[in-house]
Design a protein around this nucleic acid. Sequence first.
DNA 1: TCCTGCTTGTTCGCATTGCGAACATTGAAT
DNA 2: ATTCAATGTTCGCAATGCGAACAAGCAGGA
Lengths: 260, 260
Amino acid sequence: MQNELTLDQRSADRDFVASLEKGLSVIEAFDASRPRLSLSDVAKLTGITRAAARRYLLTLTKLNYAEFDGRYFSLTPRVLRLGYAYLSSASLSAQVQPFLERISEETGESSSAAVLDGDDIVYIARSATRRIMSIGLGVGSRLPAHCTALGRAILAFQPEDEFRAYLQRVRLEARTPKTITDKSAFQDALEATRAQGYAIVNEELEYGLRSIAVPVVQKNGKVTIALNLSAQAGRVSAEEMERRFLPLLNSASETLRYML
Amino acid sequence: MQNELTLDQRSADRDFVASLEKGLSVIEAFDASRPRLSLSDVAKLTGITRAAARRYLLTLTKLNYAEFDGRYFSLTPRVLRLGYAYLSSASLSAQVQPFLERISEETGESSSAAVLDGDDIVYIARSATRRIMSIGLGVGSRLPAHCTALGRAILAFQPEDEFRAYLQRVRLEARTPKTITDKSAFQDALEATRAQGYAIVNEELEYGLRSIAVPVVQKNGKVTIALNLSAQAGRVSAEEMERRFLPLLNSASETLRYML
DNA sequence: TCCTGCTTGTTCGCATTGCGAACATTGAAT
DNA sequence: ATTCAATGTTCGCAATGCGAACAAGCAGGA
């Protein structure tokens, strides 16, 4: 039944623990739209059998990562430990935070730091000014890299071959009418970013939102983090961003370079 | 070898997936003080054999939850998905956030929401004013429940038997000279909290920090969340907290009651 | 340099674990 | 009352993951 597929994997995969993969996929089955799931729901969403789903859910429940009310399962705050292990372990978050706060204080706008994970950016720290912007964009949030300033600031400084591979596979889905969806236009935008050392994105992610981001170049020359400032497009022009915000971002980026 | 111990478990634990438990413990082995770990480190920290540690680490690496530089393993931002699944799944976070921002804006002080997990509180949302307070207390952070206003506001409204069990097992470790460490004094404090419907904690967690918290009573009568406001002790008196802050917290709590 | 001892990483035969087909149960529809 | 569909649970058995044993790396001592 699984002979042809597994042949290539099998030899290499003596040390692959399938149960862990399934267990993690069960955790990820829960999301905003599905906070409470029955055993069968989980089985469907993850593609594992009901019997297996049951085992994983019961295990998670016994370990206090999940709870069960007799019909539905839901996650408990304990799962935060898993994600949080990364945040504090990397502690990037903690190191970057003070810079964001300073920037945000001086400008009165929201400032964030993000890393790349696959084709998404993930916020690792934020300093938000009140009111503005969709709430629900906290640490841990993901957005497609291609239409965010943070994403482009990181992508533009990836090694040639990695960037090519990304360009090949990415689908430039439009989030607003302004989103760049043409690959060659996209490549041009990234070349500009690489040339000038920062990215500005105007309402390509969300209508009314303008953002500027710079990469943080680490000691080894690699770029894994970017910092940004974002503001309502109506209130701050692109020109003002370059003039007022860019120096602040650059100076923070420069300092971080020697810390990380 | 494991006959006597397993007899009681075995029958019930046909459906306990040990591999998942071990895999999760491997993830949790990484923390702030140990961001990068060798295979053997992980084996020691988790108490599993090196062979097993290797399998789990390789699995996590293959699934992109971890990465390997030839010597050390470290977690990747992908693990945030796991914790984040809860945040957005519960979406408590998103629902509570606007209230915190409003409160924080009106008072100029930091406001947070937390839930109880075991004997710790875990922040699920925050609206912090700049400068004040130890950074590194973001969403996902944990603090012992007993010496925080948030913790006491939740604890005081737990079912009798659960509270007794907590009282029994908890070690009231001092964080400052002011921390209540005597169990009967602690019980008194919680009774007062229950009677008045809110908790004030003065410098029991951290010197110079004063906090007031109220429970959020849900439709089913249970209390799982609390909201707080905290400020520098020198700048805001306990009396002022009750007079200015309490009504704000109560009104937010009241409204949330009908949302959650 | 060669040995010695210790630590770390890897292999592979085998017992155990977790698999899932089959069964039981619930509940909605006719 | 009966059928049918969907959900949850059991249990014999294959395959997975286990860990003792082996290999490789590495530091000190002579």
